[in-house]
Each structure stands twice: as structure tokens, then as C-alpha cells.
């Protein structure tokens, strides 16, 4: 028989094979049947995939990865794998799981009964420059001093102003991030801060939240948003598999 590999979605606790249906990545013209490969009370959630097949990070491949994890999450706690892992055989999967049993168990422990929620806070303003100048008198004073004269500002002066702006923008972000983290402290298990993308993003956070506390978390988002001025927009998303709260490299060099 030709060797069929297995695409890996995530790792769960399981003593018996669990079937999740034909919701996996496409393989041989149809959606892959998602099931588990078991060893020592651990299960890898997989579907058939040829190791020789090209696997590109396209939407049609990425979305099933996420959807499978969402489906698994309904049933049990899952450690999500990063997109793109294909094992050559079940035996290889078992060997790897066995080798990293301690680390996998610890990770599962960490995220048991929890989901990830995302929160991005943005400044809903036309010009981030004007906004920051507006909240920082010192920056405003320097701007007026440099641009308020009859002579054009020098390159050095503009650079100085630019540096101060950058500095104040980041300080504002840090202060607001600390404030938001503190306001969520009682509602979450863990928090992760990502670097903001784009000038108008104030913060990009991921929270590990008890599955049962999800509703309370959403209510908290509205409470927190209500405590901020109207320029602050709070966008939350989830539940996600706990992608941000997995610290697991199943490589050869990792400790047992």
C-alpha cells in the first residue's frame, strides 16, 4: 500500500479513538476524515495527507485547520499545532508523543478547560499624530515651537519632534495596556501581549479564559470599553484554540 501521511491539527487527552467527521484538509478530492492517533492516553488529531503533496498556506487550507480545532474544542481541551505539520506515519507520531509526554501533559494541564479570546484596541481617529499631540502638552509645545516660527524647521528639529512623537505614542500604548491588563486580571487565567501592528493600534492582547467564564469575559470587554474615551475601539474575537498559550516544540532536541 502506498504510504499515506497524516496531517496534524492538535493534541488532546484520549484513551479511545475520537471521530470528528469529514471536516479536514482536502485529500484525494474530498475533505479528510478527522480522527485520532493514540498513545499513552494522548491523542494526535489527524487526517490523511500525503507527505509528498504540496501544502500551501492558502485560505482553503488554513480555514479547515482552524475549523477542525474549533470542533475538537467543543469536545475536549486541545493543544493547537501550527499549520503545516505532516507526519509520514502513525508510528512516527506515536514515537514523538511518547518522547515528549511530560511536556505535552504539562501543556494540556495549563490550558485545560480554557479558551483563548483575542482583544485588539485601536484609536479610532483620523490622524494619530494629531491625537497624540492632543494628549501630550510637552509634544504640543515642541511642535508649536518648531513650526510656529517664520523660518522652516531644520532636519534635526523635525527628527527630534519625530522621536518625541514615537516615544509618546509608545508610552501611551504601554500605559493603556497596563490599565487594560489590570482591568482584566480577575476575569482571565493568563494574558499575552503582542506587538501592535499599525500606528493606530493601541494593543493586541490574547487572554486565556475559563470556558465557563466566556460570557463574563465578553461582558467585561464592554465594561472596560465603557471606561475608556470614545476614541478607543475594542474589537474582541474568539473563542480560539489556545494558540498563544502553547509553548511546545516537539523537536528532537527538546528535553523529555
Amino acid at each position: 500500500m502506498a504510504t499515506t501521511g497524516r496531517y496534524l491539527y492538535g493534541l488532546i487527552r484520549a484513551k479511545e479513538d475520537v471521530e470528528f467527521g469529514a471536516i479536514g484538509l482536502e485529500h484525494d478530492g474530498s475533505r479528510g476524515r478527522v480522527h485520532t492517533v493514540l498513545v499513552d492516553s494522548m491523542g494526535a488529531v489527524v487526517s490523511d495527507f500525503s507527505p509528498r503533496e504540496r501544502l500551501l498556506p492558502l485560505r482553503k487550507n488554513l480555514e479547515p485547520h482552524n475549523q477542525v480545532l474549533k470542533e475538537v474544542m467543543r469536545a475536549t481541551t486541545v493543544i493547537p499545532m501550527t499549520f503545516g505539520h505532516v507526519a509520514r506515519s502513525d508510528e512516527e507520531i506515536r514515537k514523538t508523543l511518547r518522547r515528549h509526554r511530560a511536556a505535552i501533559t504539562a501543556q494540556l494541564e495549563r490550558v485545560t478547560g480554557a479558551v483563548e479570546m483575542g482583544l485588539k484596541v485601536k484609536w479610532d481617529v483620523d490622524s494619530i499624530y494629531d491625537y497624540i499631540v492632543g494628549v501630550d502638552p510637552e509634544l504640543a509645545a515642541l511642535r508649536d515651537q518648531i513650526f510656529g516660527r517664520s523660518t522652516a524647521p531644520s532636519a534635526n528639529e523635525k527628527m527630534e519632534l519625530g522621536k518625541l512623537f514615537e516615544d509618546r505614542l509608545n508610552r501611551e500604548r504601554d500605559e493603556q495596556t497596563d490599565r487594560v491588563l489590570e482591568m482584566f486580571q480577575q476575569s482571565v487565567r493568563e494574558a499575552k501581549v503582542n506587538a501592535p501592528k499599525g500606528e493606530k493600534m493601541v494593543m493586541d492582547l490574547a487572554f486565556l479564559v475559563d470556558r465557563d467564564a466566556q460570557k463574563a469575559f465578553e461582558e467585561r470587554v464592554y465594561q472596560v470599553a465603557g471606561a475608556f474615551p470614545a476614541e478607543y475601539v475594542f474589537d474582541y474575537s474568539g473563542p480560539w484554540a489556545p494558540f498563544h498559550f502553547v509553548d511546545l516544540d516537539l523537536g528532537l532536541d527538546a528535553e523529555n
Partner: peptide, 17 residues
């Protein structure tokens, strides 16, 4: 999330993309 986060295998069993 799917591309940047989650567990990884950097060993021999995996064909990384």
C-alpha cells in the same frame, strides 16, 4: 494564529512547509 502560534515539531518526522 494558525501560521505563527501553536505547537511545532522541528524534528525528523515533519515536512515543514
Amino acid at each position: 494564529r494558525v501560521l505563527n502560534k501553536g505547537a511545532v515539531v522541528a524534528g525528523d518526522i515533519v515536512i515543514s512547509v
